[in-house]
Design a protein around this nucleic acid. Structure first.
Length: 267
DNA sequence: GCACATGTTCTCGG
DNA sequence: CCCGAGAACATGTG
């Protein structure tokens, strides 16, 4: 479910209910996530206060009052939400906070992970530029494209280069920019890179305004669906006609993932 | 049964 | 070193 807009939407909807709250109880019902949840996980968190909720790429960062960070990655099917009363078999971790709010981590495929890190430690230092940050400039993107022969779509999805873009938004961004997914990054002209840069900011911002994309079971921090899935221009629309020019949208695999583009609108 | 799924990480090989 | 292909992870949907 989660690319940058979904993670950001969860952050925005969860923030008012968790910021400043103390963790009163943690129940770990399933430790077998992508990385095993450590036995002392609950003990380390209990009694700690969440001072802030931030995002880096596709990671959620709960800042703790002892300086450490609760790091959450939602993998492919993870949800983090204030929960209803009923429990699901895929509710793996449950937090009870000092304001009475219950936050549940649910993840059927268990590709996500949840761990406590020291500041500056671990996977966060391997992340590329966050496309919502001021460091993401056309010049930065041009530098990333220099001498890289790989397709621009896989470059955009490489978390070590640009942190937060996944398979849905890479296709949507490149449609808006008018660039084919398979174009070699080093072949892009300055105006094309500028268009991709602008489209990245625009598509991600618009998707956040719509509350993310719910193509199967993504929900925000309050359990509500997103709305951007109804505004896809190419993603999952292979065989349909392009809304801009009428040409049939193509679907073809790239880097092991399905990609979608309009052969007329995108060069 | 088969294909496919919003992600990451590994191996193997060119 | 760069990069692609393919597999693996676990579960669900069509």
């Amino acid at each position: 479910m989660p690319e940058l807009p979904e993670v950001e939407t969860i952050r925005l909807t969860l923030m008012p209910r968790v910021a400043g709250q103390t963790v009163e109880e943690v129940v770990v019902r399933e430790t077998r996530l992508r990385q095993k949840v450590k036995a002392e996980f609950g003990v380390q968190l209990t009694g700690r206060r969440f001072t802030a909720l931030r995002r880096a790429g596709k990671y959620l960062l709960f800042d703790l009052d002892d300086g450490r960070i609760l790091l959450v990655h939602l993998g492919m099917s993870g949800c983090l939400a204030t929960s209803a009363d009923r429990t699901d078999r895929h509710d793996h971790v449950v937090f009870r906070l000092s304001n009475g709010v219950i936050v549940t981590y649910n993840d059927p495929r268990r590709f996500g992970c949840m761990k406590i890190i020291e500041p500056g430690e671990g996977e966060l230092s391997d992340l590329g530029v966050d496309p919502l940050s001021s460091d993401f400039t056309p010049e930065h993107l041009r530098e990333l494209c220099r001498r890289r022969r790989r397709p621009i779509k896989t470059l955009l999805m490489d978390q070590a280069l640009v942190a937060g873009v996944g398979n849905i938004y890479a296709s949507e961004i490149l449609f808006r920019a008018g660039v084919r997914p398979a174009r070699g990054a080093h072949t892009l002209r300055g105006r094309e890179i500028a268009a991709i840069h602008a489209a990245t900011e625009e598509v991600l911002a618009e998707a956040i305004r719509w509350g993310g994309s719910s193509i199967s079971d993504y929900r925000d921090g309050n359990g509500n669906r997103g709305g951007f899935q109804d505004r896809f221009r190419v993603y999952q629309r292979g065989g349909e006609s392009c809304g801009r020019c009428g040409t049939t949208i193509r679907a073809r695999p790239l880097g092991g993932r399905s990609s979608f583009y309009c052969p007329a609108c995108q060069k």
